[in-house]
Design a binder for these strands. Structure first.
Lengths: 135, 135
DNA sequence: TTTATAGTTTAGAATTATTATAAACTAGAT
DNA sequence: ATCTAGTTTATAATAATTCTAAACTATAAA
């Protein structure tokens, strides 16, 4: 993804393309593989190189803004820390209990043949499967 | 569940049936419905009545011990707080994004017709589906 | 262009969730 | 009854996140 595309992406979701947001967005979206991260890991990534520094508060703000805009998505975990994923397509995860690592599972590798009706007045927004692994 | 059964449950998992553990266990397991909770909510429950007080640290310790023993299970969420469930059977959840509430879905209301092979050397420990709801 | 202003960033404080510590206590074996 | 390892407790420490309010900036309008 080129810088121009990044800027458009931000603009299209009502976010001003500030220096900090563009920097974070490039770090997130100019990758080959999808990226699983916490605010802490992203903050380290962003601030390690001699590059321009971004404050931790801004990393928090930006991650929240990107999540609301649907550019990244929050992952379901059983930890007291928030995890995010640059893969926003409907997909599922392996969670390895030994290594504590998350891996994507392609959407078409899981098929549900029966799903309950949502309660009245509610719609299904999405559906995620987490498969816990052990040795 | 009677007190004696509670005591056995604790003993069988190598936990001494102390006053505090029995109190917490009764609060958790002598319920009609399954119970979704955080340490904070459980702590309030336990300590509200004029009954014997249990320290917050003990509530944390006990919840951890019960989880390890498999008497309760940790729920997958996208929050920076740990949620637990007294329903340890394989089952799934609705997560209502508006009210932030979790509801159990019976195991047999969800059917998977295709599940990926686990990576080499790993076994599937369990599989959980979370259905996110919106208005 | 300047200028005005709403949106954004920032350091640091405040809050919330959890884990660690080490002294006092207790269940259960001897 | 006594001993001891396991447990509880208040409190401190740490970790994750949110808040605050002052400084800064993108951008729309003059």
């Amino acid at each position: 993804m080129q810088k121009k595309a990044i800027v458009n992406k931000l603009r299209s979701s009502g976010l001003r393309p500030t220096k900090q947001r563009v920097l974070i967005a490039r770090n997130l979206f100019e990758r080959d593989k999808t990226f699983h991260f916490t605010v802490e890991t992203l903050n380290k990534e962003i601030n390690k190189k001699g590059s321009d520094k971004v404050s931790l508060a801004t990393v928090y703000n930006t991650v929240e803004a990107f999540t609301k805009a649907g550019h990244i998505k929050q992952i379901l975990t059983s930890k007291s820390k928030s995890y995010f994923d640059t893969n926003i397509k409907s997909h599922h995860h392996f969670y390895d209990e030994d290594s504590k690592e998350l891996t994507d599972i392609n959407y078409n590798q899981v098929k549900l043949s029966k799903v309950p009706h949502p309660p009245k007045g509610k719609k299904i927004k999405n559906l995620e499967v987490v498969i816990r692994l052990q040795k």
